[in-house]
Design a protein around this nucleic acid. Structure first.
Lengths: 132, 132
DNA sequence: TAACGCTTGTTATAATATAACATTATAACA
DNA sequence: TGTTATAATGTTATATTATAACAAGCGTTA
């Protein structure tokens, strides 16, 4: 498995490392405060790194949370097909990797004549533990 | 297509009317400036109305745009199952009403043991006109 | 070298959203 | 009707999320 990390700039690497170390999705300003000690001082530096990392598909943005997680799917080349489950109680977020689902959605066509290039799906509910 | 009949408060009605008149998704502060002449002066008034309307399922939030559209689906009782197509070029947003899709997603199960109560799906691409 | 593209650093500000609190309206019902 | 509970309102202030704008550095390559 090859890592695109090789091609990342310094700030991009720092931000990615921070996200990878986290057990949960991180928000931009939380990342910012984590990386201040590494010389990243201002929001644009974080947001620029995030934008690039999302573009590369190595992280994903959870739109309904304004938070970022690293992509656990090693085959994920870009961020064009993403699905997450979000626990309403503990906020745990998991990337759903289900080939039937992704095939279904990637091939989905409706009658509007639109050509879909990308999708993002977010499921909400209670995770196994919080159901108890 | 019939709109849903619901008992709404004054501010909720004003906000809903504004969204219904719009041809495209509206952002909260854009709504705010539209309704200033009707006596709504501050963000919380708009956000509270929006929150309630979303809860009732008469409008939906497009998470990736921080914008709100009215629900065109007269059978949509709550905001538990939503799907949209978003044109990357003209920003046109359409609610997807496809029973096969909603059945598929509503019944979707993965192996995490999570029980899904709600989902939101956003497709991105080029609409018919922008493809030309 | 010069021109270019990309990343960086920096300050300032825009855009989105909520906290907190006081007040008023409405609904439910004894 | 009066009483209570709940929902909605109005208001100020502030928190949170994100981008604009500009200057400068660095490596590539023409």
């Amino acid at each position: 498995m090859r890592h695109k990390q090789v091609n990342l700039s310094k700030n991009q690497q720092i931000v990615l490392e921070t996200i990878r170390k986290a057990k949960k999705p991180l928000k931009a300003y939380s990342i910012l405060s984590s990386v201040k000690k590494k010389g990243i001082n201002a929001p644009p530096q974080v947001y620029r790194a995030l934008e690039k990392l999302v573009e590369l598909g190595v992280i994903h943005k959870i739109e309904s949370k304004n938070a970022f997680v690293d992509c656990k799917n090693s085959e994920c080349e870009t961020s064009k097909a993403t699905a997450f489950s979000i626990c309403k109680k503990c906020q745990k977020i998991t990337e759903i990797m289900n080939s039937k689902l992704s095939t279904y959605l990637t091939n989905f066509q409706d009658n509007t004549g639109m050509k879909y290039e990308k999708y993002n799906l977010e499921f909400y509910g209670l995770c196994k533990r919080c159901k108890l």
